[in-house]
Design a protein around this nucleic acid. Structure first.
Length: 320
DNA sequence: AACAAGGATCGCT
DNA sequence: AGCGATCCTTGTT
């Protein structure tokens, strides 16, 4: 299952052709309303790779990556570094061309290593949030749909999941890039590239199991919970906290206002509700219902309204 | 119109 | 029983 080279991808970044009118989930349960004013996807790209997470990472939190994106086109994309190669697992093998001296090379490699680590972590988080296996090969048709829907909603892509009905993870992985394009002429290559990142991450994981996470204690605790009880139903507050712990992925929909005090704001109520609905297989989930569930936490002392109540702002009673 | 609060009911585990 | 989804009414921003 040779993963096609990342450099071969040529994903296009483009705004969805038409507004947010969506039709239905695979099961045709109900209309999906996306908020108006769809954000156009970023215009810059890392040559040959689609890393939606890192578009945000680049601009908002890590200016150093922004510089990477402006680097000359010969910079090997992170996707390459992630490429599964059972014979020789490990860090990127391809040295960048000698352009600006050893120091720059060294920095490049450091950056690449960090990016690869972040990609692996992000895939991990998405697995937890979606309750799916990291390896797309293991996905059922339902898992494939969840992954597609999640990606669509998170990055505001037009609907592509409908074109992949009754496709298992194995089927998905056996499809070529042109197969993807046949199903979605506009975004097939993008989804293909995104899938390739996941496959690569899964292969990486198999080759070299992740080192002990250097994340926060809370994050470790949470990972343990997930590891030990893989099919334990996730609670809404856990889900929200998990989104909050990945600001570079999800800050567009939910973010901390004061992490120390546990105060957070839901920036895009519709999107958070959609993601929660995907996670729980509840196509009809909306903010009205989600917020009702949050209010149930008032009594239980898990979440409350901050002292100065503001719209869409809540507070964890026991911040981490 | 969107958000907030909370009662009532239902299904699932 | 606990939890969350759903539907509802009433009030606020």
């Amino acid at each position: 299952m040779g993963s096609p080279g990342g450099a071969a991808h040529s994903p296009r970044y483009m705004s969805p052709p038409h507004g947010g009118a969506r039709t239905a989930w695979p099961d045709g349960a109900e209309d999906i309303k996306l908020p108006r004013g769809l954000l156009p996807l970023p215009d810059r790209s890392w040559t040959g790779v689609y890393l939606p997470y890192y578009d945000r990472l680049a601009v908002e939190e890590n200016p150093w990556i922004m510089r990477m994106t402006e680097a000359p086109a010969h910079v090997p994309p992170p996707c390459r570094a992630l490429e599964p190669s059972p014979a020789k697992p490990g860090p990127p093998q391809e040295p960048p061309e000698a352009t600006g001296g050893q120091v720059e090379e060294c920095c490049l490699e450091q950056v690449q290593t960090m990016v690869v680590g972040e990609v692996l972590k992000d895939v991990d988080t998405a697995c937890k949030l979606l309750n799916i296996a990291p390896d797309p090969q293991d996905w059922s048709c339902v898992h494939v749909q969840k992954w597609l829907l999640w990606t669509e909603h998170l990055y505001r892509l037009p609907q592509v999941s409908a074109m992949f009905q009754q496709v298992s993870g194995r089927d998905l992985c056996s499809m070529s890039e042109s197969d993807f394009r046949q199903r979605s002429s506009q975004f097939g290559d993008m989804m293909y590239a995104h899938l390739d990142i996941w496959r690569s991450a899964a292969a990486m994981k198999e080759c070299c199991p992740p080192p002990e996470d250097s994340g926060s204690a809370a994050e470790d605790l949470w990972s343990d919970v997930i590891r030990n009880y893989p099919n334990q139903p996730i609670h809404l507050w856990q889900f929200l906290r998990e989104l909050l712990l990945k600001p570079h992925n999800y800050s567009r929909c939910i973010r901390w206002l004061n992490k120390e005090k546990g105060i957070f704001k839901i920036e895009d109520s519709a999107l958070v509700a959609r993601l929660w609905g995907i996670r729980k297989n509840r196509p009809a989930m909306n903010y009205d219902k989600l917020s009702r569930s949050i209010r149930q936490y008032y009594k239980k002392g898990i979440i409350r309204k901050p002292d100065v109540s503001r719209r869409l702002v809540y507070q964890f009673v026991n911040p981490v």
